[in-house]
């Protein structure tokens, strides 16, 4: 088992290098940036060359890449063109908000999808099954930004139950935590709906497979109560693939956060990224893109390891 985990970790290393390579060359080929500044006709050619040399831009690309990589590994992710702050600080400042949002919508998706999926599988071809399938299809086809707009229209504009955006109210009688929760609910639902739909379908399929297994018949034959059979014997096996899907849905949560944070003016990584895009703040764009890819690799790794830990039938060789 340890050998398997170690092997998966080692396999991730070339991928991480590939990610930094892609990120660097996108930045290298990008228009604008410090070299554009040097095109100013008021600056003398000698000064321009001096400036390029000082920034290391006269080096061949692969030397520049290695330089950048060296700094990147040490945690020096460059300085924002616009905000003049180290990019790393910006990301660390925004990350907790995004993680909170992702965590909340993750809970929303998981806590609803698993029970609904089990029920749909247990009562296959009943109205419960058909209704959940109908809503799952709907959830998968609904654009999240439209859902977000509709939720704001209903809950903020008409009924005024939840705030339309931000993370805190200026004037609020609620306590801090309650106020924050109120600001979280609409974005979390918007972000989690597509995954809720997908996971419901996935849980249903996985449970259907498990319910047809021989060991379920054996458990029933032993005279066990039905709920023990379903929830203890069935669920434990049926959830193994579902749990790994959670690991694989990490990128969709992180990517979805970009649009959701935009709709709700929620100050997380996604909004930082979009602001950087509109301001052409390349160091921030590249750092977040690289960071997101590393998160995906981590998510996949986690899913694989979790699967190996949970399912003893996997052959580690």
């Amino acid at each position: 088992m340890q050998a398997y985990i170690l092997k998966r970790l080692l396999q991730a290393i070339p991928l991480l290098f590939g990610i930094t390579l892609v990120s660097f060359f996108m930045m290298y080929l990008s228009p604008g940036g410090p070299t554009d500044l040097a095109m100013d006709p008021k600056i003398k050619p000698e000064d321009r060359e001096k400036m390029m040399a000082a920034l290391g831009l006269d080096q061949p690309p692969w030397v520049q890449y290695l330089n950048w990589l060296f700094h990147f590994i040490q945690g020096d992710w460059g300085t924002s063109f616009i905000r003049k702050v180290p990019v790393m600080d910006l990301i660390w400042e925004r990350l907790p908000q995004t993680l909170l949002l992702m965590g909340t919508s993750f809970c929303f998706a998981a806590l609803l999808s698993i029970p609904i999926g089990i029920l749909a599988a247990k009562k296959k071809n009943s109205w419960v099954d058909y209704t959940s399938t109908f809503f799952a299809f709907l959830g998968l086809a609904t654009p999240n930004f439209w859902l977000g707009l509709l939720l704001v229209m209903l809950f903020s504009v008409y009924w005024n139950i939840f705030p339309a955006g931000g993370i805190a109210s200026f004037l609020s009688t609620d306590s801090g935590a309650l106020d924050q929760l109120k600001h979280l609910i609409l974005p979390a639902i918007t972000l989690g709906t597509a995954d809720l739909a997908g996971l419901t379908r996935y849980t249903r399929a996985s449970m259907l497979e498990v319910l047809g297994q021989n060991y379920m018949q054996t458990a029933r034959a032993k005279g066990m109560r039905e709920w023990v059979v379903v929830y203890k014997h069935g669920l434990r096996n049926g959830l193994i693939p579902v749990i790994t899907v959670f690991g694989l849905s990490l990128p969709s949560f992180f990517g979805g956060a970009v649009i959701v944070e935009k709709i709700f003016s929620y100050p997380g990584i996604g909004l930082l990224f979009l602001d950087a895009v509109f301001q052409r703040d390349y160091p921030v764009i590249m750092a977040i893109t690289t960071f997101s890819a590393m998160l995906v690799v981590l998510g996949n790794l986690l899913a694989d390891i979790l699967y190996a830990v949970l399912d003893p039938r996997i052959d580690y060789k």
Binding site: L15, I19, V22, V258, V277, T289, S292
Partner: peptide
Amino acid sequence: RMVDLVNAFPSIFLLITIVTL
């Protein structure tokens, strides 16, 4: 491995980055 590399980026980040470039 090329497929793995492209898949490693959450598509929206790469989409937006390349479209801006």
